[in-house]
Design a protein around this nucleic acid. Structure first.
Lengths: 188, 188
DNA sequence: GTAAAATACGACCGAACGGTCGGTTGTTAA
DNA sequence: TTAACAACCGACCGTTCGGTCGTATTTTAC
């Protein structure tokens, strides 16, 4: 009876999402995948090593199948942020942020993985936006977009409300289009 | 040698801020205030009871000394969100959100306290804004403002960057003023 | 089919967890 | 000053934590 590595990782992700790093135990994870705790150490040297695996899988799912430069920048931007917003709304918490808050200098590998996770998100959105506007503007909009989605997720988590997330998506799209239009005017 | 209750509560706040509910132990707290763990139970029946105390103190500090209707709505709005933004920037994490993510149905008292904390924040901002705009618009702007500040805090926590917070403050003020101006136009 | 490799289990380790309780010390009120 | 009360400590409890290791079982490769 062999449990797939990806099953362990995606299960760990949901545990980290709901309970955070400190609150999710290796025994929780073992129970959830139908193994005993010691079996997890065959695949992962320690608890901390689960974090990069979880975040890499999540990045792969978010951006992995997306063919960059496949269409209009704005369609692609909308598609990505709607994918992210839908995931966050459905799951009610952001695993990246829960891990960000739950890791520290005492878990350097995990901390670095979290930072890389958010950096990849920002870089990916920036690269889409920079097809339509200056790089520095694109970066700020990418940052603010992620911040809005993160903040709106808090309202999903706390109140079960989805309106803030809808507005966050709408405002982010508007902001991006306005910035692109402003560049369009200034380049005439 | 008597340790003040407020010292315990504000110390607990910083521990919950940095380590979350599960990650902060009663022994951490005892060490930090210079007591032994069992002494904490004289004042608090259990760990969970610390959460409402922490959040009530924070609300008191944020809104307690503010005289409502003391001036122009916009000055007051700016003052409050700048106070919140400064605190979040200085501390690098939002204790409310860390507790929100770290509490569940297993800690119902804490979960309820977190919800009340964010509700109080939203209500307070809404009441300021509703002096200048319809109640439903005020509520949405209050929500989006808090979401932006929350999201910008994530960038402080993860990257140590403050720019996103500055933009969040600026955009929130703009949004509020635009909404007030829109009401002003429509009422002529 | 068989041997080697991979996976899984159960028992174990030391440390830490939230919380309890009897005894001691410090503070307060009369 | 003294008694009552509050605060504090140290030892203790049962449980859980991350992780280790010898053995058993399953899977894989030839």
């Amino acid at each position: 009876m062999k449990v797939m590595r990806e099953t362990i990782v995606s299960t760990a992700r949901e545990l980290f999402r709901s309970k955070g790093y400190a609150g999710a135990s290796m025994n929780d994870l073992a129970d959830a995948v139908g193994l005993k705790k010691s079996s997890l150490y065959v695949r992962f040297p320690n608890k901390e090593a689960l974090v990069p695996a979880v975040l890499d899988l999540t990045l792969q799912e978010t951006f992995g199948q997306r063919d960059s430069a496949s269409g209009q920048w704005d369609d692609e931007f909308v598609e990505v942020i709607e994918f992210i917003a839908t995931t966050l709304t459905d799951r009610g918490r952001c695993v990246g942020l829960h891990l960000a808050y739950g890791t520290s200098d005492e878990t350097p590998i995990a901390k670095h993985a979290v930072r890389a996770f958010f950096q990849a998100h920002r870089d990916h959105l920036s690269s889409i936006l920079s097809r339509a506007m200056p790089v520095d503007v694109a970066r700020d909009i990418a940052t603010d977009t992620l911040a809005r989605l993160e903040g709106a997720t808090a309202f999903v988590a706390i109140f079960g409300e989805k309106d803030a997330m809808k507005r966050a998506v709408r405002l982010s799209i508007e902001e991006a289009k306005n910035a692109a239009a402003a560049k369009s005017l200034s380049s005439r």
